[in-house]
Amino acid sequence: MDEGLVVVKLSPDEYTQTNSGNKIFKNASIFGSQNIIIHGKSILMRDCMLRGDLTGIRMGKFCFIGERTLIRASHRKFSKGATMFPMHVGDCVIVEEDCVLVAAQIGSYTHIGKGAIVGRSSIIKECCKVEAGAVIPSDSTFPPFSVIAGNPARVVGRVPECTQELISQAAKELYESYVIQR
């Protein structure tokens, strides 16, 4: 679909825009916001939850986090005990509704489908596509350009080579198409 021509109106009672251009649902559960760095022009939709209280979360530009999605950092167990690792989300990452992301790293230009669960400490490299309903086991790593599906998730295909430009455009168009009415 051509998001560049569609406009979705957001009510100013529910959504607010920050100085760096982030459009955030006012009642989103954001814990520990001092540890959350969003580089700008991102959209956090209704009822999403970001747990910055456990450890830091860094998101790039033009990210889109769908409704009711939960983002929290993961931990890794060492012989001396557990440590919480900060979570890195790249630029232009499109996350659809109802996802649970406990990953260590989600690369830029990734598209995560509805209801996907990304396991603890997993690493998803750039330009990947996670199909709807995929369940990614903990500690797994996926190379760039993979299509990930299934429970437990495996690489089932390759995304087109021009994914970086496709998703980068789609993310920018998505950001522009959501307009907070004045």
Binding site: M1, E3, V8, G66, I94, E96, H111, P160, L166, I167, A170, L174
Partner: peptide, 8 residues
Amino acid sequence: MAELLQLD
């Protein structure tokens, strides 16, 4: 949004 990137 649901029809994002219907490439096929």
